[in-house]
Design a protein around this nucleic acid. Structure first.
Lengths: 332, 332
DNA sequence: GCGTTGCGGACCGGAGGTGTCCGCAAAGAG
DNA sequence: CTCTTTGCGGACACCTCCGGTCCGCAACGC
């Protein structure tokens, strides 16, 4: 470190971010300048809008405090990995509307993340235990990252897509938005070969490659990407369906569903609500029905015989287990 | 902006991070300097270890690429909120060992996050829909943030703690580590009034206040905080318990448990495994038993009559629901 | 080829950074 | 209360190095 002024200011910022309080003398030693220069540097940070509070007296020192703007974040390796994985995993679990900016932050980080850290972030993220779904829908961090950058920069990408039936096709698309919903990441894109808007489940995408070709950003039909996705998901015919009437409010029922997709649960006039369930597998349906029944409220179901049979089997197994072993004298 | 050199370099970094590619002329206009100076500034960034690739020709320009070190991150408001909420929520959902650094990153961000953004982050984080647990164990973002900073800076804090029986006590503790486990955040701290190490569930802590008093960081008994927490949790007598024998591997069973706490599931010689379940509520137990039974493998259970009764009731309700409504002619 | 882009050396005037003084104010210890 | 420790910032002298204006060169695409 030859200690040019900008470099020194950055290390000063870094020091102030890594520990609460520093004395002027200490900083001077670390930066290899006199304490007067430290004072000047602190003044420079302040002039940049990053307030540093100095306290006098024997227990005095400098500490960084929150100001009007967020100062440049100087993360060490570990922290960078933590932030990357947090962005990769967290956004998938929320049902808020911040995915888009979350993706932007990810793109920003992704673009400058040293290779060694990128590998670690991907590894950690994969090791993360998915909470609800057993495993199959894990999105590949690399795929998500590349798509995030491509979305930000309006760059056409090619990729492979494995549809619901397992058929793999090569695609060439303009990636417009990454949105989460239904506990999954979805890509809203314009398919160049087939022409027209498509939504892709990110966990079914592989081998994404940016082409370098740029495209003009257009509006998603309807304007709001999240709204558009909801529409597509609602109109998609699920292979397995069921409908429940429950004697409980829609909000209470939504809370126990794996994914309370808006529009799938609606209150009706008798005080109960109707739940329209759809899933790619009978197991998926079963899980949701189970959750609703476990609420304890009266339920009636419209469903196929296959699902009914599965429920009966489960019921039988439960009573079997309940009556099977010896009773303990424990409290609960 | 009076455009001192450090300020200009920061805006340059910010520009390069916010978009993939910039032409020299464009940068010169934005920075209000000549293109020659832009070239010099780019050179300065490179000298700092933050590689910027320049491409020549008509489609040329500058773009930031990954280098040896992570450059200072310049996030806008939205992105800062996204990162903060990601750290707050994601860390809670993982079972990996990165909580400590995740907490450090959070502390770093927390310390300099402008007030207006802090409020937004907290709001978003609270609005986040928890995936597994209905709601009661939501940790308050402010509490977690304050503890994160206090841990980093070895600062004694006071707080209120509501124990399992709902009794609230005032505590004065040295916060040493924040660890996630059991789908919750735990604080490992030294209780100054009572003397000795304690673990606190962060969701039961309120009114944390840093005292300004510093403490000497000591080693947690055993050295490894995560290991220590596991020990405490395993030795804690849960009010409600059950034990299952399952004809499936421990890894397969762990996958479906809400929290496969190491040591709670162990393989035995007959090819099956034994699951020791503990929970604060019967419902908690019920949820786990249900998940295991739904696996479809033979199960025998050792449990209290209360749990058995709950299982029987659920079984009855399931068969009722299965036989109740009309059968549809749908596929699933 | 020509235009467009990035690249970087040379020069020079002057802005401004650094160390070394200095006295001042505030906080805490004795 | 006094003394010490901390941060604060003006003044000055020295001189680095910053930035604008030249210039020719190298890639890349039409």
């Amino acid at each position: 470190m030859n200690a040019s002024l900008p470099a020194r200011l950055l290390t000063l910022l870094s020091l102030l971010q890594s520990r609460r309080e520093w004395s002027g003398a200490e900083l001077a030693r670390r930066l290899e300048v006199t304490d007067r220069t430290v004072r000047r540097d602190v003044g420079r940070l302040r002039a940049l809008g990053y307030p540093v509070r100095g306290t006098t007296g024997t227990a005095g020192g400098y500490r960084m405090v929150a100001g009007r703007d967020l100062p440049p974040l100087l993360l060490d390796d570990e922290e960078a990995v933590a932030v990357a994985t947090a962005l990769l995993t967290a956004a998938g679990g929320t049902v808020t509307g911040i995915e888009d900016t979350s993706v932007r932050a990810l793109a920003k980080l992704e673009q400058v993340l040293p290779a060694r850290l990128r590998h670690r972030a991907a590894a950690v993220s994969r090791a993360t235990v998915p909470l609800v779904r057993p495993a199959p829908n894990q999105v590949c961090p690399e795929v998500l990252s590349v798509l995030a950058v491509a979305c930000r920069d309006h760059e056409v990408v090619t990729c492979s897509y494995r549809d619901r039936d397992g058929v793999v096709t090569e695609r060439r698309v303009e990636p417009h938005h990454l949105v989460t919903g239904h506990q999954l990441w979805y890509l809203i894109a314009h398919d160049l070969r087939r022409g027209g808007w498509r939504t892709f489940r990110v966990d079914r995408i592989s081998e994404v490659a940016p082409t370098g070709r740029r495209f003009q950003r257009g509006e998603v039909p309807g304007g709001d990407p999240a709204e558009y996705l909801r529409g597509v998901l609602l109109s998609t015919p699920f292979p397995h369906r069921a409908e429940l009437w429950v004697a409980a409010s829609a909000t209470r029922v939504s809370r126990v569903l794996t994914d309370p997709l808006p529009g799938r649960v609606r209150d009706i006039e008798d005080g109960g609500c109707v739940v329209a369930l759809g899933s790619d597998t009978v197991d998926g349906l079963l899980r949701e029905v189970l959750a609703v029944v476990a609420l304890g409220e009266p339920v009636t179901m419209t469903a196929s015989d296959v699902l009914r049979e599965r429920l009966r089997a489960l019921s039988a197994r439960l009573s079997e287990v309940a009556d099977g072993g010896p009773a303990s004298d424990g409290a609960g």
